[in-house]
Amino acid sequence: MCGRFAITLPNDAMAQLFAAQPANDLPTVPNFNVCPTTQVHVVRGTQTGRSLIPMRWGFLPHWYKSPTDGPLLINARAETIAEKPAFRAACRERRCIVVASGFYEWTKTEDGTRLPWYIYRQDTAPIAFAAIWQSWGKDDAIPTCAVVTTAANEDLKGIHHRMPLILEPDSWALWLGEQGKGAARLMHPGAQGVLAFHRVDPRVNSNRASGPELIEPFDDG
C-alpha cells in the first residue's frame, strides 16, 4: 500500500538525477503531504529520451466515463498487474517512475488509534517508485498513474503487509523499457536494510496537513 508520500527534492535536481527533460508545469516542491488525485512527479521514457512530467496520482482506465466512475486506483499489485484489465496493457507498454523522498504508513493500537510512520531510504537518496501510466479522455487527455506495490519485506512487515515497489538506479532503464523486455523480474520486495522509519506527528492523518514538521521524529511520551 502507498497512500501518502513526501517529495522535497527540487525539480531541477530531480531532472538531473534521472537525466530527464523537465516539463514547465511540474508540481510545487517541497510537498510533505502528497495525496491521491493530486499531481505528482513522474519520469517517463520517450523516443527522444526521458521526461519529467506531472501526472494525476490515480490511474483512470480508458472505460471510465468520469474520474469518479469507479474505484480510485492509486496502487497496482505486482502479483496481479499483468492480469487486471485496468493495468495489463500499461504494465507492458507504459511503465514510469514516481519520485518521492519518503512515504507514510500507519499502524493501529488496540483501541484503534492510527499511528503514522515516515519511511525513507537509509542513505537519504530519493525513492523511485515503480509505476504505470494511462492517458484518460479524448479531448485534453489527462495523464494518470498508479504506484506498483509488493508484499512487504522483513524491514516493513511490522508496519504494513504491503510496500511500494522501489527501484534501484541500475533498474531504472529496464523498468522504463530502455533495455528491452524483462521488467517483470523487478517485481519483488526490495532488499532488506535499504529503508528506515520513525513515528511522526498524527497531524499527517489529515490530508490537509502541511509543513516539514510532518516528517520529523515524533515522541508522544
Rank of each mutant, 00 (worst) to 15 (best):
G221A: 15
P22H: 02
F32S: 05
N153D: 09
A141P: 09
L72I: 15
A125P: 02
T144I: 09
T37H: 12
D170F: 09
I74D: 02
D69T: 04
A15W: 04
F18R: 05
A131S: 08
K84M: 12
V43G: 06
Y120I: 14
P143D: 07
V147L: 07
G49T: 13
A20I: 07
W106I: 08
A173W: 10
H198S: 07
T37W: 08
T150M: 03
I127E: 07
D219H: 14
S210P: 03
F103W: 03
R88N: 09
R94I: 10
F5C: 05
F18M: 06
Q39E: 15
D69E: 11
A15Q: 01
S66Y: 14
G221K: 09
P10L: 14
D111S: 01
L186N: 04
G158R: 12
H160W: 01
R208D: 09
S101T: 13
N24H: 11
P54C: 11
Y104G: 05
S210W: 09
E154R: 05
P10R: 09
L26I: 07
P67I: 13
I81S: 01
T48F: 15
C35F: 08
I215H: 06
K157G: 02
T113E: 00
K65T: 15
V147W: 00
W175F: 06
V200T: 07
K157T: 06
H62G: 10
A184C: 12
W133M: 07
E93I: 10
A90G: 13
Q16E: 14
D201C: 15
G190P: 08
T124E: 15
L26V: 02
L60R: 00
N33G: 07
K157H: 06
A82K: 09
F59M: 04
G49F: 15
H160T: 08
I127N: 01
T124I: 11
K138Q: 13
R203T: 11
R121C: 13
E93S: 13
A128N: 05
S171Q: 12
S101A: 14
N153H: 04
A13M: 08
I7Q: 05
P27W: 07
R185C: 14
W106V: 05
T68W: 15
D140H: 13
P10S: 06
N33P: 11
T150Q: 04
D220A: 15
E93K: 04
T149A: 03
N11L: 06
R44F: 11
N75Q: 08
E216R: 14
S51K: 13
V147E: 01
T109R: 02
T38K: 09
H62T: 10
W136E: 08
P36D: 05
A125V: 04
F218K: 04
P61M: 01
Y104N: 04
C91G: 05
A128S: 09
